[in-house]
Amino acid sequence: MCHPTSPFPFRLSRSNLTTMTTPDTLTLNSWQVIAATDEIPVGSITRTTLLDTPLALTRDRDGVPVVWRCTDEEPGDEIDPETILDRLPVTTGYGFVWTSLGTPPKELFSITEYAEPDRVNMSCGSIGIHVSAPRAVENFLDMGHFPYVHTDILGAEPHTEVKEYDVEVSEERDEVLATRCRFFQPRAALSATDGMEVEYVYRVPHPYCSVLYKSSPEAPERRDVIAIFLQPVSEDRCRAHLLQSMIDSTSTITELRRFQQTIFGQDKPILENQYPKRLPLDPRSETPIRADKSAIAYRRWLSQKGVTYGVIPAAG
């Protein structure tokens, strides 16, 4: 059973009452991330939820992921993937498994750096967050919270200024692009003793995914890549899957993972205290400032694309 009945009498809380909505066509027909490939067991079942739909997944002996709509499978059940006939489309990319409940495009958006041979590519874990996927994307794009939420790591009071930066929606690639984003960081690298200004570039190539580029301390002409892929579990819940593609010959994978998990561990409680949990697209629902240019562009882009899942669409 995918929905075990609780042995305790329970009362409906507000989140249980949230009506399930049919995802918009774009969301339905897009690739959506569901798990880190190497965390899926071979020959036995694990489960997850995508767009309110329970899914079962496993890998065959060759390591190829198989995903299907869950009926009465239990996690840990042994399974012969050959017996699964009604499968959902699957692709792998950037160390993760992606599926779709509709008809997905041929290819996933590109992160060209990932293929460079000297990079350390790693998934940094998956964190459940009780907020919509677009809220989490917006938080990833936001620099203003660094001194308050990631104190002494990505920022520190009193260095709170968000300087002017550029935002565009690239028509060619259909993605939001923020460039020249600069922020003063007290300790931008482990070796740094003085604070320095760090420059970022952000891309939003998918309504629920964002990619961040920052100059690499080891090779200043190249850029480290940190990406967040959000799995829309329901309209107000998501799982954040993190990718790092670094030029770093000294840090261990454990250290690099711990760093990203610390950062997201700091974001989680803030995001879970955000209301409403779905991202409101009506410009009059919140109060933007100049520092929020990228968020405004992202909201408009979602509106124009007709994304309605995980957002509160603007009326009219």
Binding site: P283, R284, R290, I296
Partner: peptide
């Protein structure tokens, strides 16, 4: 419901 902010707050300042 959350009340809407005024029109002049909704746009970039």
């Amino acid at each position: 419901a959350f009340e809407k902010v005024s029109v002049d707050l909704a746009t970039m300042p």
